[in-house]
């Protein structure tokens, strides 16, 4: 009973990352994890994972050596604030960019 060949257009979205683009570009500081202080990394056992829990954007992986997705990490610093062992520090992006530049030049 299809009398209408309508091409309905509606504002219905399918899911995917990066609706706001590369939100990693929002960062002024980036979190750096010192694995020697990180509980699951040190113990090589599933434990703590508070950074993963509190991250508003879910960009910290839940694994023995947690990794941060820098494509989307907004640099809020909650992980650094809440880490019970102080394993995470917020480092200025500008200093890291300089370092990365130097590394690239060397190579």
């Amino acid at each position: 009973m299809d009398e209408c060949k309508c091409e309905i257009k509606t504002s219905n979205s399918k899911s995917g990352p990066g609706d706001a683009g590369r939100t990693g570009s929002w960062r002024v500081e980036r979190p750096v994890i010192d694995l020697s202080k990180c509980t699951p990394a040190k113990r090589q056992k599933d434990s703590c994972y508070l950074c993963w829990l509190y991250c508003p954007d879910g960009v910290i992986s839940k694994e023995l050596e947690p990794k941060i997705d820098l494509e989307y990490c907004k640099g809020c610093g909650i992980c650094a604030q809440e880490c019970p062992t102080g394993a995470i520090t917020m480092v200025e992006e500008t200093s890291l960019i300089e370092e990365e530049k130097k590394t690239n030049e060397k190579n």
């Binding site: 504002s11 219905n12 979205s13 399918k14």
Partner: peptide, 25 residues
């Protein structure tokens, strides 16, 4: 056509830009 369906999730009637914009694909 666009019934809310956990098997085929969509976000219905959301904020739409003045301009055309690429989707996730």
């Amino acid at each position: 056509k666009h019934t809310l369906d956990p098997q085929n999730p969509e976000n219905l009637n959301t904020v739409t830009m003045p301009f055309a914009r690429p989707d996730r694909d």
